[in-house]
Amino acid sequence: MDDLTDLMRRATEYVEPESTDLVDRGIRRGVILRRRRSALVGSASASAVLAAAGMIFAGSQLIGGESSAAPPVAGVPIVATPSGTPAAARPTRQVTPNDTLRTLKGLVPAGMRVSQPRTWGDNFIAASYVVDDGKGGSLLEVQVMTRQSQISCANEAHPENCTTRPDGTIVLIEQTPGSPVPGVRVAAVRAVQLHYPDGRIIVVGNGNSTAWKKAPITRAKPLFTVAQLTALADSKAWAFPPVGYGKDLGR
């Protein structure tokens, strides 16, 4: 149908984008996608959400830690301390994965049992525990990094889940219900990302299973609410690796 070809080409002859920064926006979004790919190895439906949170599944490194029969650990209650003033550029000391794991453990509320400690990451640091309040184990994972570029809510794939605080910190929320298909074990996920103006990034994720996929669903919903995860991410106890941290410096 040559007429349709001709119609389409004539109809679009004078069609041009209104934005003059479309290429720049595409590149900025591409940087985000490239960094997410470096952290993602899974491909199940929940992975799309976890990719948005920068979560990964493999590459875990057991460093020893409590057995599953360990007594509940008393930790610092999760307290929200958001800043209403522009975030000062705090110096980033050379944090280690063990530091991050200890911080995560210390922020788990008192009376909850923690088990299965893990750390991993190449140009970021990640740590996780399975946290149990007596109603079923719940994977709690954190990732920290620092980079030079910054995101904006306008460029996000889901800007409705993105807010900008008065100090310029960007908050991204992701929630997925998990797979409804019987026998397909994909955890429901709640994840919070904080992108500080000075380049520090923290991602905190929580699920209703002891793993993101291929593990039994242990509870109806993730243990922590979005507000609690946000408070955990906001904690001043976190230390961040510097820009360029890790072995994959070419990304």
Partner: peptide, 18 residues
């Protein structure tokens, strides 16, 4: 739609960049 078209192009460029 112009705005959706720009979003689609932006996402395409991002994937190409990646």
């Amino acid at each position: 739609d112009r705005h959706q078209a720009e979003d689609l192009v932006q996402e395409t460029l991002a994937k190409m960049f990646r």
